[in-house]
Design a protein around this nucleic acid. Structure first.
Length: 209
DNA sequence: AGCCAGGCCAAGC
DNA sequence: GCTTGGCATGGC
């Protein structure tokens, strides 16, 4: 059922290709910075911040560590929560650059202030090609409305392992499925859903129908 | 012109 | 343990 959902989303929306982006930065650095900047923030705003960083030649976590904090805040301002995010990014850069790359696992990332489960999994999956599924608010909402789960506030790791159990161990599937869920929820399964245009409405339990 | 975005943390019950 | 408030800009 869950894998079938992936296939339907995939054939409807096509390939998403989230990361890497245009390649100004190394993948790990680019994903980490993007993942932190997009916390509770639309990707459109993150893009503006990323453009500012590229223009200012901030192209790596090393650069993030070096740059003057006030100047940095100004560059990432469009992404919102810029005071907090500037601190988180600098602290993240410091933590990551102080250890060997092999030490960067989920537990390590979660120990860094400002890195929660979704951000950690995003960095692992898209930045390090680790087979770990990314759950977000959209995933919970969609799966709840579809009737796959009976509680929208399901614990992060429970939904994560439920999905992982039901899809093939394939990096591309992991990467695309999460991106497709986001795409679908931005288009149709919004807070106020547009059910009449949705190709899933026949088997969706959404109470709002 | 509100409402909302690809969360997370600290503080308060 | 679970809830709540704070963080901030820009698009629709």
């Amino acid at each position: 059922m869950i894998y079938n959902l992936y296939k339907q989303l995939s054939s409807t929306y096509g390939k998403q290709n989230w990361w890497p982006l245009s390649g100004y930065m190394e993948k790990f650095d680019e994903v980490s910075i993007g993942a932190i900047l997009t916390q509770n923030t639309s990707w459109k705003n993150v893009e503006k911040a990323l453009e500012n960083l590229v223009s200012a030649k901030i192209l790596s976590l090393e650069d993030v560590l070096e740059i003057d904090e006030e100047f940095f805040k100004n560059l990432i301002r469009p992404a919102g929560f810029y005071n907090q995010k500037a601190k988180r990014l600098k602290n993240f850069a410091k933590s990551v650059l102080s250890v060997k790359k092999e030490k960067i696992n989920r537990q390590f990332l979660l120990s860094i202030n400002g890195i929660g489960k979704e951000t950690a999994d995003t960095i692992l999956l898209y930045g390090l090609d680790k087979l770990t599924f990314v759950v977000d608010a959209y995933t919970k909402r969609l799966f709840y409305r579809l009737g796959v789960i009976d509680n929208e506030k399901i614990e992060y790791d429970k939904l994560k392992s439920l999905i992982e159990k039901n899809i093939p161990e394939d990096l591309e599937v992991y990467k695309e499925f999460h991106a497709l869920i986001v795409e679908h929820c931005k288009n149709l399964c919004r807070k106020k859903p547009i059910c009449d245009k949705c190709f899933l409405k026949d088997w969706c339990y959404n109470k709002q129908n």
